[in-house]
C-alpha cells in the first residue's frame, strides 16, 4: 500500500514538474506512514532510473519497452494499469502536465475511479488524504476526498517545492509490461516548434500585460501608452491572443512564454493558473483589476481595484511626471 509517483520524462530529460509531484508524494507517504515509490516509463531509460534512485524513494520501477519510446495515451495507460494491478499502490501522484492531462483520466477511468486533477495542497485526516483543488480559475478552493483505492491525483506546477536529490540508493526494479503495437491507436509524429519567435519576452526587464479587462481591440492604445512610457514589452493573457488582438508570440502563460521581469503589470488579467505559472517569477507584480476577488491579487505585490480605463492613463501621467 504505497504512494507511487509517476516521474515524467521527455526524450531522456525529466519534466521540470516531475520532482514537485515527488515532493507531494513524499509528504503524503510520510503522513500516512507508507513507502514512497516512483515509476519511470520509456525506452532505454536506465540512465533515468539510476538518476531517480538518488532521490528518497523506497523503490524505483523502470518500465522499459520500445513501444513506450514515444508517448501515446494507449501505451502509457496500458503500462501503468499493469503496474498498478501488480503492485497495488493506494495513491498514484502525477505532475499536472499536458501529458498527464492526456492519459491520467483514461487510466483512472479504467479503475472506475475519479482522477483528482490539478491539486494545490494535501492534508491528511483519519489516515486519509484530503486534496485541495481550485475552482473557478482560482476564485474558490475545495477539499476533495476520494473513497476506495487506488486514488489518482495530479499536482499543479509550482504548488510544491521540488524534491532535491539525496545520496539515497533506491532499489531499482524492472517491471516488464506486455504491450502489443496493435493496441496503440494513435500515431504521434515528431514534436516541433513553430517558426522562431521574433519576440523574446523572457529577456524583458519590464512587461505590461493585458487581459480580458481591456474589452476590445480598439482599447489597446490605453495599455500601449503605459508600455511606451515605461519602455516595456507588451504581453497578454491567452484570450487576447485567441481573439487575434495581439500575436500569439506575446502570450504569457503555460502555453506561451514564461517570464521573470523586474516589474510585471497585469492589467485587466484575472489570474487564471495558466497565466500565473508564466509570470509568478516576476520580481514585482502590479495588478489592476475591477474584481477585488480576482486571483491575480494573490500573486501581486501591489494591487489597485478599479477601472483600468481610469487608472492606467493616470498612471501614465504620474510616470511621465516622475521622469520629468
Amino acid at each position: 500500500m504505497s504512494v507511487l509517483v509517476v516521474l515524467e520524462q521527455h526524450g531522456g530529460k525529466w519534466n521540470r514538474m516531475a520532482f514537485e509531484a515527488a515532493a507531494a508524494g513524499k509528504m503524503i507517504a510520510e503522513s500516512l506512514g507508507v513507502p514512497l515509490q516512483a515509476v519511470v516509463l520509456g525506452s532505454a531509460i536506465d540512465g533515468l532510473a539510476n538518476d531517480a534512485a538518488r532521490y528518497e524513494f523506497r523503490k524505483v520501477f523502470a518500465t522499459d519497452n520500445p513501444l513506450l519510446a514515444r508517448y501515446t495515451p494507449d501505451g502509457y495507460t496500458a503500462a501503468l494499469e499493469q503496474l498498478i494491478r501488480a503492485h497495488q499502490p493506494r495513491l498514484i501522484v502525477f505532475p499536472h502536465s499536458y501529458q498527464v492531462r492526456d492519459y491520467a483520466p483514461k487510466l483512472s477511468t479504467r479503475f472506475r475511479k475519479a482522477f483528482i486533477s490539478d491539486v494545490v495542497g494535501v492534508k491528511t485526516e483519519n489516515d486519509q488524504a484530503v486534496f485541495v483543488r481550485q475552482l473557478f480559475q482560482g476564485k474558490l478552493s475545495a477539499d476533495v476526498r476520494a473513497n476506495g483505492n487506488p486514488q489518482f491525483a495530479s499536482v499543479q506546477a509550482g504548488a510544491f517545492r521540488a524534491m532535491e536529490p539525496g545520496d539515497g540508493q533506491a532499489q531499482i526494479e524492472r517491471f516488464a509490461v506486455k504491450l502489443d503495437s496493435a493496441q496503440i491507436r494513435s500515431q504521434p509524429e515528431e514534436p516541433f516548434r513553430e517558426a522562431q519567435r521574433s519576440v523574446d519576452l523572457t529577456a524583458a526587464d519590464v512587461i505590461v500585460s493585458v487581459g480580458r479587462g481591456i474589452k476590445e481591440k480598439d482599447n489597446l492604445p490605453v495599455v500601449e501608452a503605459l508600455a511606451g512610457v515605461l519602455g516595456a514589452e507588451l504581453a497578454a493573457s491567452r484570450p487576447i491572443c485567441d481573439n487575434g488582438w495581439l500575436p500569439m508570440e506575446r502570450q504569457v502563460g503555460s502555453s506561451g512564454q514564461t517570464v521573470s521581469p523586474r516589474i510585471y503589470f497585469a492589467i485587466g488579467i484575472s489570474g487564471a493558473i495558466q497565466h500565473l505559472v508564466g509570470m509568478k517569477g516576476s520580481k514585482t507584480v502590479v495588478a489592476i483589476n475591477k474584481d477585488e476577488n480576482a486571483p491575480i491579487f494573490e500573486t501581486a505585490d501591489y494591487g489597485a481595484v478599479g477601472d483600468l480605463f481610469e487608472i492606467v492613463p493616470a498612471l501614465v501621467e504620474e510616470i511621465k511626471k516622475s521622469k520629468a
Binding site: 472506475r112 475511479k113 475519479a114 483528482i116 484530503v130 481550485q134 475552482l135 482560482g138 476564485k139 474558490l140 478552493s141 475545495a142 477539499d143 476533495v144 476526498r145 476520494a146 473513497n147 476506495g148 495588478a287 477585488e292 476577488n293 486571483p295 491579487f297 494573490e298 500573486t299 501581486a300 505585490d301 501591489y302 494591487g303 489597485a304 481595484v305
Partner: peptide, 22 residues
Amino acid sequence: APSALMERIYLPAHAKHTQILS
C-alpha cells in the same frame, strides 16, 4: 459510482501580503 467527494468549498487563504491601494 461517485469516487471523489467535494466535502467543502471556501475562499482561498491569502498566502501573500498584497498592498491594495485605494
